[in-house]
């Protein structure tokens, strides 16, 4: 699948990404290497994996990382209650210790977690390892074998190789520096906030009924908002939520009232809210309505 095919199929599904992402995804599929996607929150990193799974008509297996995530939650775990039950039930059968062990440490007693699931899948799935920066460094080290060789070692069962190499996408918000070893095993792409033009295209793709002027105003407003020193900079996800909220309220244009009613869709920290209020120009120009962070100049074309 070429980068053009990927971009077209993504666009058909409402995902407007840059050429860099399409090329990186093409390479990921061609070279069978994991792709590490970094970028600020809310720019579509996770969504790209979901759309890719849809494009490839395959299963999306997602591993959401968090501090304290361990191999038992990510890879596999023995079903201890079932093993205990089997020991109790077979106590009278006088099996040897070896026989018992081989029985209770077999695949029937294995609980598959996302990583093992992805390796054992018959049809290559898309494996999304989301927010890898939230996981501990120990877990990152554990991932190396998987991402390098696409195999895992279970002491009781031996080494299991992937039947089909999954398409692996890792995302990171850069809350922690990832190790060089992990980065070296991955292709890399950085997704930034979209340009005004791209954001307008995204709004139209995801909300086909949106008024063209409203879409332009939202995109321009978001561009200005992202230049402010906010604690939580809104991403594309917030733009879409905001646009949907404004459409729901039957607003075809941004004005002070509609912004005040819906600002909670994009500004989610009280300090940021105060900052925007304090920066409101005292005497906005009559021809350009004041949207709180300076007037929006979206009257292009």
């Amino acid at each position: 699948m070429t980068a053009d095919d990927i971009a077209r199929r993504f666009a058909e599904r409402g995902y407007i990404g840059g050429e860099e992402l399409s090329v990186a995804l093409e390479l990921m599929l061609a070279l069978e290497k994991p792709l590490l996607i970094e970028g600020p929150a809310g720019v579509g990193k996770t969504e790209s994996a979901k759309v890719l799974a849809d494009v490839l008509q395959t299963r999306l297996i997602r591993l959401q990382c968090y501090e304290g995530l361990d191999a038992a939650s990510a890879l596999y775990e023995w079903n201890y209650p079932k093993q205990l039950l089997r020991i109790r039930l077979t106590e009278a059968e006088h099996e040897s210790v070896e026989e018992r062990e081989s029985e209770i440490f077999s695949e029937a007693f294995l609980l598959r977690r996302p990583l093992l699931e992805a390796i054992l899948e018959e049809r290559a799935p898309v494996l999304l390892i989301d927010e890898i920066d939230r996981a501990d460094e120990a877990f990152e080290a554990f991932l190396l074998e998987l991402l390098g060789e696409f195999q895992v070692t279970i002491p009781e069962l031996g080494t299991i190789r992937a039947r089909r190499r999954p398409a692996v996408i890792l995302t990171s918000n850069r809350s922690r520096e990832l190790s060089d070893a992990l980065r070296r095993r991955c292709l890399y792409v950085w997704i930034d906030y979209p340009s005004v033009e791209t954001e307008i295209a995204i709004l139209h793709a995801r909300l086909p009924k949106i008024n063209a002027r409203l879409a332009e105003q939202i995109a321009e407003f978001m561009r200005q908002l992202r230049e402010q020193p906010l604690q939580k900079v809104p991403g594309v996800a917030e733009s879409l939520d905001w646009a949907a909220a404004l459409m729901r309220l039957h607003r075809d244009e941004l004005d002070e009232r509609s912004i005040a009613q819906t600002i909670g869709c994009i500004v989610k920290v009280q300090d940021d809210w105060e900052r925007l209020r304090s920066q409101r120009p005292s005497a906005p120009a009559e021809s350009e309505p004041d949207y709180g962070i300076g007037s929006v100049r979206a009257h292009r074309g």
Partner: peptide, 24 residues
Amino acid sequence: AIHAIGVRSKRRFHHALRAVLCSQ
């Protein structure tokens, strides 16, 4: 990567090398 992506577009050639050679 270059073998996979081809060299018809210089921009894509640039994107491909960047995806492979950059890691942060």
